[in-house]
């Protein structure tokens, strides 16, 4: 999952970015609205955390600009102004939820996960598709009640595919959602991860959770 964090206070940005990385997100952390808009437009962001009190382009303007660019990823507002007028304004220009400073990191994480979940059409924080269960809070996966041990990269790939269940996800998108750096992308790595996931989830080749669409990408195929 790729997360865009726009917060002007460096200490808070670093600390929150670290917490989000620890939670398994690929984090782009920037300090102002212009940069935030650039990252939002140039990278396949899955979710954004935006502080409303930014210097230069305000958080409010950044959100409306992102929405005007038809970028629909969920946005969580961080605000110190806990007046309702500000909250309503923020959500009316296109944000999806807010957290008031000073926040608990757990709460931010819970809200982010809830936003991602709802975006994937999942009502619970535990995704269940046939025999496959993915708990986004515990970051645990099980098949038919049997825990499956995944590396964090494998988990991220599966989570991304399940959140976008039924949709085709390209290799590039998968790469960008699990790697932070813009390094030389080797699509073989994704193929390797998907191959391992298939073996771990479906050792007997019976449920076939992930489809390959040649030249286009992958799709999580269990209803």
């Amino acid at each position: 999952m790729r997360l865009l964090l726009v917060e002007d206070d460096q200490a808070l940005r670093d600390s929150l970015a670290q917490s989000m990385k620890d939670a398994g997100f690929v984090v782009d952390a920037v300090g102002d609205g212009e940069e935030g808009l650039y990252y939002g437009k140039e990278y396949p962001v899955d979710v954004a955390i935006i502080d409303l009190g930014l210097p230069g382009m305000s958080g409010m303007d950044l959100i409306s600009n992102l929405r005007a660019s038809e970028l629909g990823f969920p946005i969580l507002i961080l605000t110190a102004r806990d007046r309702w007028q500000d909250k309503v304004r923020g959500l009316e220009v296109g944000a999806d939820d807010y957290v008031v400073k000073p926040f608990h990191t757990e709460e931010v994480l819970a809200r982010i996960n809830a936003l991602l979940r709802r975006r994937g059409g999942w009502a619970e924080s535990v995704f269940t598709a046939g025999p496959v269960t993915l708990d986004t809070r515990a970051q645990q996966v099980s098949v038919d009640g049997r825990a499956v041990d995944l590396t964090s990269y494998e988990y991220r790939v599966l989570e991304h595919l399940m959140i976008n269940a039924g949709k085709v996800v390209s290799k590039t998108e998968l790469t960008e959602s699990i790697y932070e750096q813009d390094f030389e992308r080797d699509s073989n790595v994704i193929e390797v991860f998907v191959g391992r996931l298939r073996r771990k989830l479906d050792p007997d080749n019976q449920i076939r959770p992930i489809e390959t669409l040649r030249g286009r990408g992958y799709r999580f195929a269990i209803e």
Partner: peptide
């Protein structure tokens, strides 16, 4: 109100830093 908003921002951001630092 604007001034109060800025004041809230200026005071609560450090609080948020303190809390998240402690948490970590």
């Amino acid at each position: 109100r604007n001034t109060l908003g800025n004041l809230a921002h200026a005071l609560k951001t450090p609080l948020a830093v303190i809390r998240s630092t402690l948490e970590q």
